[in-house]
């Protein structure tokens, strides 16, 4: 198949998913609202002392972003499975890999991207020093993409189960941990005025590996889930 054919396929899937997600609303707004609410509650729970909050802020922001991402993961293939449009994807003679890649990227565009863009605002709320902002945003931009791809593997594996929610978390959370460690450590280093490029480079490696390899796992998992 020609490259332009593949590009058109990717664009078509991306457009359809973004459009559907925008119209439904809850799919992109729920994780975002969760992120904002939980981050806003922390100063109330811990107390408003700026240095204490500033110390905890990188960890809080990253953990809440991770949970928000997990919250959104289950819906990735659920809708398509329920309305049987997933079958159409599997029965297309065109390769599944680009379709899955486009679907996961669309999911990230609607969840991880707005969350990353909003994160500096919540950083201010949590007294995160200004020198940590760039590291926070870049690490979240890279990190949430990786989380989306890892989550998509779990979502694809559990989409055929009626109650896959808990199982999904169990599958996905251990894989999330390296991303969390390098992500929050990048922000911490930046706040302390240290070098944070190595951690971001590591996230970049995760990003590229996830982008290239996880669609293979997702394709396989989807075929198994539908085969029943």
């Amino acid at each position: 198949m020609s490259d332009s054919g593949l590009a058109k396929l990717v664009v078509a899937v991306l457009r359809r998913d973004v459009m559907a997600s925008l119209r439904r609303g809850s799919e992109w707004s729920n994780p975002l609202v969760f992120f904002v609410m939980v981050c806003a509650l922390f100063p109330l729970g811990i107390g408003p002392q700026p240095d204490r909050l500033a110390e905890l802020a990188p960890g809080i922001l990253w953990v809440v972003a991770l949970l928000a991402s997990l919250l959104a993961t289950d819906s990735l293939f659920r809708g398509d499975f329920d309305d049987a449009t997933l079958e159409q994807m599997l029965l297309s003679h065109q390769p599944l890999y680009p379709q899955v890649l486009a679907k996961t990227l669309a999911h990230w565009l609607m969840t991880g991207l707005p969350l990353s863009i909003l994160s500096p605002v919540l950083g201010v709320l949590l007294q995160l020093p200004a020198k940590g902002m760039l590291a926070l945003m870049v690490s979240l931009l890279l990190g949430t993409t990786v989380l989306s791809f890892i989550g998509a593997i779990g979502a694809a594996l559990t989409v055929g189960l009626r109650k896959g929610g808990l199982l999904l978390s169990l599958i996905v959370l251990p894989l999330y941990i390296p991303v969390l460690i390098f992500g929050s450590s990048a922000v911490k280093s930046a706040v302390e005025g240290g070098e944070y490029f190595p951690q971001l480079a590591m996230l970049g490696v995760f990003y590229l590996v996830a982008l290239a390899l996880s669609p293979l796992a997702i394709c396989g998992a989807l075929r198994i889930s539908v085969d029943q």
């Binding site: 459009m19 559907a20 119209r23 439904r24 809708g79 309305d83 049987a84 449009t85 079958e87 159409q88």
Partner: peptide, 9 residues
């Protein structure tokens, strides 16, 4: 026998 279409589109 499924819907085969996205309801919001």
């Amino acid at each position: 026998h499924g819907a085969g279409i996205k309801a919001v589109l």
